[in-house]
Write a protein that binds this DNA or RNA. Structure first.
Lengths: 201, 201
DNA sequence: AGAGTAGAGAACATTAAGAGAACAGTCAAG
DNA sequence: CTTGACTGTTCTCTTAATGTTCTCTACTCT
């Protein structure tokens, strides 16, 4: 897969956004305006490059004749449009900043777990969510941890250490009660460093 | 694999960090600044060495044309250990499955928004979370949407259509009231397809 | 001393990005 | 069915940024 230049990437981003939003491909002039230039010829050159990279298909001479192929994870970053509730139309903010999924979640000793159960709903971790865990044996007070009890049962709870050295595992759900254990019975397996959820669109 | 000198290692480290954080490779000048020297020519020599060692690939004369070899899949994916609360030590389950961040979140016409405010807390979307939006102008009943009201104020709410064609935007927070608008005043900008959160570890 | 590693910086070759003209094909309205 | 405006395609030009190749200097280590 050829490497894309910045302008080419901008073009591709605009394309997928446009096609996703309206049902049809943009005109060359619309692309030009969308990526902030004036020349149709230049846009055409970028499109040719994208076609050669296998990312789009151009139906020759057809107006709005651009089809985007199964794009692939060419990037592991998403454009960050801005803050919601900031009271601005999103189009206006479009642009520069990007949020890197890698930076967000990846790192040494991390793995994912799918959450079952409602014990942390009030902390915004729902049944079916995926949490990213950083493996470690100790954790700070108040951290959300994966705790193994008696070497058998693994649960996700908020950690609290008592003065006498014993450990309380706090669920974030008023319907459930805190659990109290002597330190020997609890082994920490990791700390929650991230959480993610998918919605069926 | 040839042995690397210190400067070469510094270069490689900088490369992988840069590419991990942003989606693209750095310019020679950026590398130079990143490893604390001034000469592009020197950087080029290091890159040649790294290429010879099989650690990167250089696309000749292309700007930002550096591709790093080796575990590229590992950059995008996290090992999926299993289900928490399944009552098993995690080590035991660890293994096969991997969860792809790209598959989870990336796709045509998607972008990210940082959430401000508490209006969706009961749906597990907290202040400070990041939501992934798929840009579109229509949405299904019950979907969580980004809605623009009167072309001015953008908010995140659950969508409900009334029989008379008007629209109700439902917050997921008992402290807040549903908002009701005639259809003309509400423009849908996108649908929430994902959500993620980072915890300070 | 000699070999290897670091670095500076000049000179040159290409690329990326853009403007815009000219031409040809498409499409929709009369 | 014809026509004219619109749209895609192909060119050439321009400019600045960037990659590539060299030579020269300095430092370290055995």
């Amino acid at each position: 897969m050829a490497i894309l230049t910045r302008a080419q990437r901008r073009t591709l981003d605009f394309l997928s956004r446009f096609i996703g939003e309206r049902g049809e491909a943009p005109l060359l002039d619309e692309i030009a305006r969308g990526i902030g230039i004036h020349s149709r010829g230049v846009v055409h050159r970028y499109l040719k490059a994208l076609e050669e990279a296998g990312l789009i298909r151009i139906h020759p001479r057809r107006h709005r004749g651009i089809e985007l192929m199964g794009g692939r994870e060419s990037v592991l970053a998403l454009p960050l449009a801005g803050r919601i509730a900031a009271g601005q139309p999103i189009e206006a903010i479009e642009g520069q900043e990007k949020i890197s999924l890698a930076d967000f979640f990846l790192g040494p000793g991390r793995f994912a777990l799918r959450v079952t159960g409602d014990s942390m709903v009030e902390a915004g971790i729902l049944d079916g969510d995926t949490v990213i865990i950083k493996a470690c044996q100790t954790a700070e007070e108040e951290a959300i941890v994966v705790a193994l009890i008696d070497g058998e049962e693994a649960t996700l709870k908020r950690l609290k250490r008592e003065r006498d050295g014993s450990i309380t595992l706090l669920p974030e759900n008023r319907a459930l009660k805190p659990m109290h254990y002597p330190a020997e019975r609890v082994a920490i397996q990791g700390v929650v460093v991230g959480q993610m959820r998918r919605y069926e669109g």
